[in-house]
């Protein structure tokens, strides 16, 4: 019974939470928010899903294994730093695209870096929760 309600609620809540998390990530450069908070929100979404449908289902939904997500996040953050090498500048020197996206602002390597943060947080939190849940 509770699981039915939970499942129903999750159906609405999850997309909302995921959307919010991406929103938080993207606006972080200009308003309070950022990759870490966004990542935690996304993880909360997956946590609800796991609670409702079980960890296996969540893993299937995720498509990528949490460990891969963590690694991808680290790699993204590193990549954001290494871009500067092409210009002969020190590690982590920011590079920006000339255009600005509406609502996000300028797009550049710091955003990629923040995406890396987001991914690591999502991956780690889901890894912990799912491992605990399966235990």
């Amino acid at each position: 019974m509770t699981s039915f309600i939970l499942r129903a609620a999750t159906g609405y809540l999850m997309p909302l939470l995921l959307l919010l998390s991406v929103f938080m990530l993207l606006r972080g450069h200009n308003e309070p928010g950022g990759g870490f908070i966004g990542g935690l929100l996304a993880a909360a979404a997956f946590a609800f899903h796991a609670l409702a449908w079980g960890p296996r289902a969540t893993l299937e939904l995720l498509r990528a294994d949490p460990r891969t997500i963590i690694a991808a996040g680290l790699a993204a953050a590193l990549l954001a730093g290494v871009v500067a090498a092409a210009a002969g500048e020190p590690f982590l020197t920011a590079h920006w695209l000339p255009i600005a996206l509406p609502g996000v602002g300028k797009v550049g390597t710091p955003l990629l870096f923040d995406v890396g943060v987001y991914l690591v947080v999502v991956g780690t939190t889901t890894l912990i929760l799912l491992t605990l849940g399966e235990d």
């Binding site: 309070p32 990759g35 953050a77 602002g105 923040d114 943060v117 890894l127």
Partner: peptide, 29 residues
């Protein structure tokens, strides 16, 4: 190019701290 100074510090001015931080997070996981 960021209005949230705290976030700019985290992802740009002092991004290496954050790189270390997410490494710690990843390892904890």
């Amino acid at each position: 190019h960021g209005r949230n100074v705290v976030n700019v510090i985290l992802v740009d001015f002092r991004a290496l701290d954050t790189l270390g931080e997410i490494t710690v997070v990843a390892l904890a996981g």
